[in-house]
């Protein structure tokens, strides 16, 4: 849907290159700041040596271990080592499971990514469609109904919607499984639930639950932006030129609506991936959120640190993509500048 509205004839002006470089530099800075927070968790939440050695370790054992782990090095050296390891996706070994954190994350990542991307897609497609519909037929009965239902989406907590869905579709109707991913198929290291019937069935409720809030948000945003755009002079002028109403809606109004909608949708997508925790808990979804909740319970700091870095990374990347999409959408940002003076 987005592809058809966005115009990809972006000219590569020096202005744009400077903009991209600036955005990238900002992204790196944010990641370093988050790395600092993640790194300090190791130093300030508990003592890593105590976490590793047994009860009967001597003071000498402890000192040796600390030296081996590099804990005696000055702070900047340790931090640099942490960053360089993180850049290579090495986050150490989980205290609880005794396995490399990177492996644990890789195992859980597909479940979360599939859930989050489908939710985002669902929220975006249905949200934009309903937003446009309710803006165009703003006095229609159906529009009023959609808006009333969307209030539920905004005001009901996610877990309640999830439990409600489980009660209806799993307990009463017995159409859908109430927990887990169903059968998954391995493609390389990626495990997907998209290729089996039980996998797809298992996805339905978590996707609806996770996407519902974003859907209502996007719908309301699209609606208000669209109403705003329909009042502009260029829409009035397009009408005066005899442009058909349908073209005005989808060509003139919707594209102008997309700029602010993308900003919010981008942030929301990051949020969906990062905070799938509640939905994953409700549906016992074997994803990153569930892993994180366990890690918190057992003070498994390497896992927590890695998860923190992951969430930050998702946010930074979506922001970067949104920044670049602005260029594709809005010619005024491409900086070709007025050719003739006012």
């Amino acid at each position: 849907m987005l592809l058809f509205i966005i115009d990809f004839r972006v000219n590569r002006s020096p202005f744009m290159i400077a903009y991209v470089v600036k955005s990238l530099a900002q992204a790196v800075l944010v990641m370093l700041a988050v790395a600092l927070v993640a790194f300090s968790m190791f130093r300030f939440i508990g003592d890593p040596v105590s976490n590793l050695v047994g009860q009967e370790a001597t003071l000498q054992d402890r000192e040796e271990l600390a030296r081996d782990l590099g804990l005696m090095d000055p702070f900047p050296v340790q931090f640099a080592r942490f960053v360089s390891n993180a850049a290579q996706l090495q986050f150490g070994v989980s205290y609880r499971q005794g396995r490399p954190v990177a492996d644990l994350l890789a195992e859980r990542l597909p479940a979360t990514v599939e859930l989050a991307l489908l939710s985002a897609l669902f929220a975006l497609v249905v949200g934009i469609a309903l937003g446009v519909y309710t803006a165009i037929y703003r006095n229609g009965l159906l529009s009023h109904m959609i808006l009333s239902v969307s209030l539920i989406g905004v005001s009901l907590p996610t877990f309640l919607i999830g439990i409600g869905l489980i009660w209806l579709f799993a307990v009463e109707l017995r159409w859908l499984p109430s927990f887990g991913r169903g059968d998954v198929v391995k493609i390389g290291w990626w495990s997907t639930g998209l290729l089996t019937t039980s996998g797809l069935k298992s996805l339905v409720m978590p996707v609806l639950t996770l996407g519902f809030y974003q859907l209502t948000l996007i719908m309301r945003l699209v609606r208000s932006e669209m109403l705003e755009t329909m009042r502009t002079d260029y829409v009035k002028f397009a009408r005066a030129r005899g442009v058909p109403e349908r073209t005005i809606w989808f060509r003139h109004a919707l594209k102008n609506t997309m700029v602010p909608v993308m900003t919010i949708a981008g942030l929301q997508l990051g949020g969906v991936i990062a905070f799938a925790i509640v939905t994953e808990s409700v549906f016992q979804w074997p994803g990153l959120g569930a892993l994180f909740v366990q890690a918190v319970q057992f003070v498994d700091i390497p896992v927590m640190a890695a998860y923190l870095m992951f969430v930050a990374f998702v946010f930074v990347v979506t922001n970067l993509v949104v920044d670049l999409l602005y260029f594709a959408l809005d010619p005024r940002l491409r900086g070709a500048g007025p050719a003739s003076a006012h």
Binding site: D233, K236, F237, A240, H252, N256
Partner: peptide
């Protein structure tokens, strides 16, 4: 045909 008051806002900025 019709011409409006403000040429700055009569044209769609994205096309």
């Amino acid at each position: 045909g019709m011409v409006f008051q403000d040429p700055l806002t009569s044209l769609n900025p994205l096309y």
